[in-house]
Computed example of a mutant assay.
Amino acid sequence: MSNVDSAATERVSAVYDDFGRRWAHGTSPLYEDWACGIARHPDLCARIAALPRRLQQPNLLFAASRWAGCALEPSESWIRWLRSAWDDVIAIATERSVQTNEPNRCATLLPVLSRLDGPVALLETGTAAGLCLFPDHYSVDYAAPSGPRRVDPHGGATSFALACEVDADASVPERMPDVVWRRGIDLDPIDATDDDAIAWLANLVWPGPDHDARVERLRGAAAIVGAAPPRIEPGDIIDLVTPVAAEAPREATLVIFHSAVLLYLDAEARRRFADTVMGLSARLDRPVLWLSNETAGTLPEIDARVPAGLAVDHRFVQTVDAVPVALAGQHGAVYETSAFRGA
């Protein structure tokens, strides 16, 4: 690892420490232990720093380890195993990618989508298997201040339900949106009928009691989507968003949406994507709504509109046309608007 400088090693250590202490803490004790364990081993951080950036992600390294058959053991034992299985783990990581397709995020999209009048056209950028392109097809149990509320699809309740806690009764949808067109864009689309691909998505779900229900929801959503798979265009979201959006029916409200996608782009690419989407309405001569769930730090103009001191750990900042409207749990478990009411 002589070609890896100390700054690169320290950067990887900081990334893993932050992942453990800020993102996994309180939601996946095992991943918190693994990430913080990696951060304490300079030789492993140097190994990771020598990899292409895409392969340095904690999510990918951990999922590849599990796919290779590691035991879900404390970091001391797991790191010994990782050293011995390093080549196999990196080979898996090289062939696979992080495409966490969490259908429960639909519960945090519905408060906005359900209030749109008339038919809706959905275009998801970074869609993976398209599980979030069907927010109107899943039952949702909302825990509201006034008590539990259930919202079902027009065709009736599903065998599983999404779950979300909201801090305002007004956030609970009164109805499902009338979605008449769905399309996705992804560098590496996933076939919802491919058992191996869905097994990898399930493997990407973090271990821990907070996440156990996510695997059941993912498989249930994959069965629904697999019965009528959406069209997913393979390619770069910046290059394709305009031509694909141009195909949406003009009588429908076009919604461009994404969750946890822009963090995988560099700052320049994020800027290009944001400028492209914000200019779509003028280029297509039609109304376009941009609905985004991304982490703080993604775009500076959005960060500037988030109240100072607001805790955003384990939360996306949800924006509508680049205006923050809520905090949304990274896996859709909570939806909070209180900090933005009247802003």
Rank of each mutant, 00 (worst) to 15 (best):
T9S: 15
D87G: 05
D169R: 02
W67H: 08
Y264G: 04
R272M: 08
T127A: 10
D167H: 12
A107H: 03
D43I: 15
N203M: 09
V323D: 14
N203I: 03
V288I: 02
Q99N: 15
Q57D: 12
L280K: 14
G220T: 01
A63Q: 04
P234F: 12
T253V: 10
A282D: 14
D5P: 06
R271A: 05
G126H: 14
D196K: 14
M278D: 13
A326L: 13
W34G: 00
I38F: 05
A322C: 10
G220H: 07
L204F: 08
L291M: 08
E268S: 05
Y31F: 07
L204P: 11
P307D: 00
L327G: 09
E95W: 15
P145H: 03
P209F: 09
E294G: 06
M1E: 13
L218G: 00
Y142E: 05
T158M: 01
E174T: 06
N293L: 04
S13P: 12
R66P: 06
H211R: 10
V151A: 00
P111E: 02
G184M: 07
P173R: 01
A192P: 03
A343S: 09
I185H: 00
P307K: 01
P148F: 07
V312Q: 02
G37A: 05
P234A: 10
A304D: 12
V320M: 08
G342H: 05
D5T: 05
D152R: 02
G208Q: 00
R53P: 15
D313N: 13
V261F: 03
E165R: 01
H137N: 13
Y142I: 01
R54H: 14
R183A: 03
Q99Y: 13
P189G: 11
V112M: 11
V98Y: 12
E294W: 08
R66T: 11
V277Q: 11
A128R: 10
L61T: 02
A328E: 10
E216F: 03
V205P: 01
A121I: 03
R219N: 00
S75K: 06
A161I: 03
V306F: 03
R270Y: 00
S13L: 09
C164M: 03
V312Y: 06
L30I: 10
G130Q: 11
I232L: 08
P119C: 03
A107R: 03
P29S: 09
T319D: 10
C106P: 02
R315E: 12
Q57Y: 09
L284R: 03
G208F: 02
V244T: 08
S65M: 06
